Amino acid sequence: MNPVPTPREYHSPAERRPGNLTLSEQALYVVGGLALAAAGTKPRPNFLLNIVALGAGAYLAWRGTQGYCPMKAAIDGHRA
């Protein structure tokens, strides 16, 4: 029977996969994602565009905080 793992044995996904974004790229992802999500909160005639902007902005901000972008990895030729 395995003992209960200690908190130091848990790893977040960011620790398991090395990041491929520099610090400045991470900042741009977060700021750009939050700006896009904020633009999606304004009322517009097309409700679908608001949903897409919120989703895309949240995804970009999340990827910026994680420090890893699968699209950049694919372009650079790195494997996950």
Rank of each mutant, 00 (worst) to 15 (best):
Y10E: 06
N50C: 13
Y29F: 15
N20G: 00
V52E: 01
Q26H: 08
G57S: 01
K72F: 02
K42L: 12
S12H: 12
A56W: 12
Q66W: 05
M1P: 10
G33N: 03
N50Q: 13
A53R: 13
E25M: 09
N20A: 00
A56F: 13
R17E: 04
R17D: 03
A35N: 03
A27L: 14
Q26N: 08
L48A: 12
P70T: 00
Y68I: 04
T41E: 00
G55A: 15
E25W: 04
E15L: 07
D76P: 04
R44M: 13
P7T: 02
M1G: 13
L23I: 13
P45N: 09
V30F: 06
M1W: 06
A35F: 05
S24Y: 07
A39D: 10
F47L: 14
V4C: 05
R44G: 13
P45V: 08
A53F: 13
L48Q: 12
G19V: 05
P3T: 02
P70F: 05
P3V: 01
P3R: 14
R16Y: 08
A58T: 15
I75D: 03
L21Y: 00
A61E: 02
Y29S: 04
L54T: 11
P3G: 07
V31N: 00
Y59A: 11
L54S: 02
P7I: 03
Q66V: 15
E9N: 09
G77P: 00
F47W: 13
